[in-house]
Amino acid sequence: MNMPLQPFEFVARYVLFSRWVRNEGTIRPDAFMPADDGDTSVQRHINQTEDQIWARGAAVATQRALTLHGRADVQVAAIIAQELYVDPNEPPENHANIRGWPAQVEKSLKKAKAQQIADASTWRAR
């Protein structure tokens, strides 16, 4: 459906790389950094149950033969506050991308933004 995201919505960043979670259960900024294609892939919570959100993460993990360690939930408003935006990008259902990152030559600014998004996120272990 690719409905535009609202600031009050939450999105989840599935964590399949255990080093992105600190021992105390907080998220490193690395988890929210974009890949070379300039996007950070996330899953919208809207219209989903808790079980459906986890099921989607588990499907990604199975597809990639990796372990789903958990997810970092963050409100879209925290992403907008960093002058980034979240674009709906289906399929799969409820998939979206964090976009608008600075150019690669300004990687340190990307890190600063990712650090603030990570600080605003909540870790949920699988």
């Binding site: 790389f17 080093r19 600190r22 690395d30 890949a35 070379d36 950070t40 990687k107």
Partner: peptide, 16 residues
């Protein structure tokens, strides 16, 4: 520091 990596292939070192 603790070690991890960015999706672009850089290695990250964190003091926290």
């Amino acid at each position: 520091p603790t070690l991890a990596a960015d999706p672009d292939g850089d290695i990250t070192l964190e003091w926290y």
